[in-house]
Computed example of a mutant assay.
Amino acid sequence: MDEIAVLIPCYNESKTITKVVSDWKKALPEAVIYVYDNNSSDQTAILARQAGAVVRQEYLQGKGNVIRRMFREIDAKAYLMVDGDDTYPAEFGREMVDRVLHRHADMVVGDRLSSTYFQENKRPFHNLGNSLVRKTINKLFKNDIKDIMTGYRAFSYNFVKTFPVLSKGFEIETEMSIHAVDKNMQVENVVIEYRDRPEGSESKLNTYSDGLKVLRTIARLYRNYKPLGFFSGFAFLLTVISTIFLIPVVITYARTGLVPNFPTLIVCGFVYMAAIISLFAGMLLSSIVQQDRQDFEIRLIACQYRYEQILRQDTSEQEP
Rank of each mutant, 00 (worst) to 15 (best):
residue 5 A to L: 09
residue 10 C to M: 10
residue 12 N to A: 13
residue 17 I to Q: 02
residue 20 V to A: 05
residue 21 V to H: 00
residue 22 S to E: 13
residue 22 S to T: 14
residue 26 K to R: 10
residue 28 L to W: 04
residue 29 P to W: 08
residue 30 E to K: 13
residue 32 V to H: 11
residue 32 V to M: 06
residue 32 V to I: 13
residue 36 Y to F: 13
residue 37 D to G: 03
residue 37 D to T: 04
residue 38 N to R: 02
residue 41 S to F: 11
residue 42 D to L: 08
residue 42 D to T: 04
residue 46 I to R: 10
residue 49 R to C: 00
residue 52 G to R: 11
residue 56 R to D: 07
residue 58 E to T: 10
residue 71 F to C: 08
residue 77 K to S: 15
residue 78 A to G: 11
residue 79 Y to W: 08
residue 86 D to H: 14
residue 86 D to L: 12
residue 87 T to K: 08
residue 91 E to D: 11
residue 95 E to M: 05
residue 96 M to L: 09
residue 96 M to W: 09
residue 99 R to A: 09
residue 103 R to V: 00
residue 105 A to K: 03
residue 107 M to K: 05
residue 107 M to N: 06
residue 107 M to G: 07
residue 109 V to Q: 01
residue 113 L to W: 00
residue 117 Y to H: 08
residue 118 F to R: 06
residue 121 N to L: 02
residue 124 P to Q: 03
residue 125 F to D: 10
residue 125 F to S: 09
residue 128 L to Y: 08
residue 139 K to V: 01
residue 143 N to I: 00
residue 143 N to M: 04
residue 144 D to G: 01
residue 145 I to Y: 03
residue 148 I to V: 15
residue 148 I to A: 04
residue 150 T to C: 14
residue 159 F to L: 10
residue 163 F to A: 01
residue 167 S to W: 03
residue 168 K to F: 06
residue 171 E to I: 06
residue 171 E to T: 03
residue 173 E to G: 02
residue 178 I to K: 00
residue 180 A to F: 08
residue 186 Q to I: 11
residue 186 Q to R: 14
residue 188 E to A: 12
residue 191 V to C: 08
residue 192 I to P: 06
residue 194 Y to L: 04
residue 201 S to W: 00
residue 201 S to Y: 01
residue 205 L to G: 03
residue 206 N to S: 12
residue 211 G to L: 05
residue 211 G to V: 08
residue 220 R to A: 13
residue 223 R to F: 05
residue 224 N to F: 09
residue 224 N to E: 15
residue 225 Y to K: 10
residue 230 F to H: 14
residue 231 F to E: 01
residue 233 G to N: 13
residue 233 G to A: 02
residue 248 P to E: 01
residue 249 V to D: 04
residue 261 N to L: 09
residue 265 L to N: 00
residue 267 V to C: 04
residue 270 F to I: 10
residue 272 Y to N: 04
residue 274 A to L: 15
residue 275 A to N: 06
residue 279 L to S: 09
residue 281 A to Y: 14
residue 284 L to R: 14
residue 292 D to T: 03
residue 292 D to V: 01
residue 307 Y to L: 02
residue 309 Q to I: 06
residue 313 Q to S: 13
residue 317 E to T: 08
residue 319 E to L: 12
